[in-house]
Design a protein around this nucleic acid. Structure first.
Lengths: 107, 107
DNA sequence: ACATCATATAATTAAGTAATTATATAAGCA
DNA sequence: TGCTTATATAATTACTTAATTATATGATGT
């Protein structure tokens, strides 16, 4: 069992289309901020602020690699979300098309 | 697989503490509006508007019985939510304490 | 038909949240 | 050291949403 308030807070994070889409992208692999900006076609500060919320909510982890920041999905400790994430459509094409290599935005 | 936008809409509904608590109450059994008002300790119009959103989102069903309206959980068609609902704490005590019989609000 | 009770709807207010714009930090490189 | 690039933070604006207040609908019972 999980506290209702905590589940509600997590659901609030998932209840935004941009954030939920970003999380579905992260099912494929970790992504750096510049990739997410390109794939989601929005501004860097917008992505940055969404990622902070996701990080504060414990849904993603960040890893700094030089000047780049990579985010990865972190839901192993939230079993009640597993099924939900399994049902989110794969985003392999998007992620591959907009990879750092293609974009030349990071290494 | 489910469309991301649809999942986001559903999560937005779950992302409100009052709505998620009401849904957890409905795990026990169907409830009429007056019971929910008492258990949640809020106003009737507030409950009424939350229930409409939940109904529009397909998460509850309504059944009119005379002058009373009963709401029941309806998530069988959303398997990605099953695990989540299983993890919500039981609310048996609340529901029993505030039943129509105790409250004398409906028959 | 009239009064009462349960619920819904509409209008308003208040609070919260996302996106934008501008600026700051901090790493890498000439 | 100074310049560029990647990201974060802060301040503002625009939007959305929850709660309240007031009113309407619709069923029940006299």
């Amino acid at each position: 069992m999980v506290e209702i308030d905590k589940v509600a807070d997590v659901c609030k994070l998932l209840g935004d289309k941009m954030r939920l889409t970003i999380l579905s992208l992260l099912k494929e692999r970790e992504l750096c901020v510049c990739e997410i900006v390109e794939i989601m076609n929005t501004s860097q500060p917008n992505v940055s602020q969404h990622m902070r919320k996701l990080k504060d909510g414990g849904l993603v982890k960040e890893a700094k690699k030089g000047q780049w920041v990579y985010y990865s999905l972190s839901i192993d400790d939230k079993p009640y979300l597993h099924e939900l994430f399994q049902h989110l459509p794969a985003q392999k094409e998007k992620v591959d098309l907009m990879s750092c290599e293609q974009l030349d935005c990071c290494d």
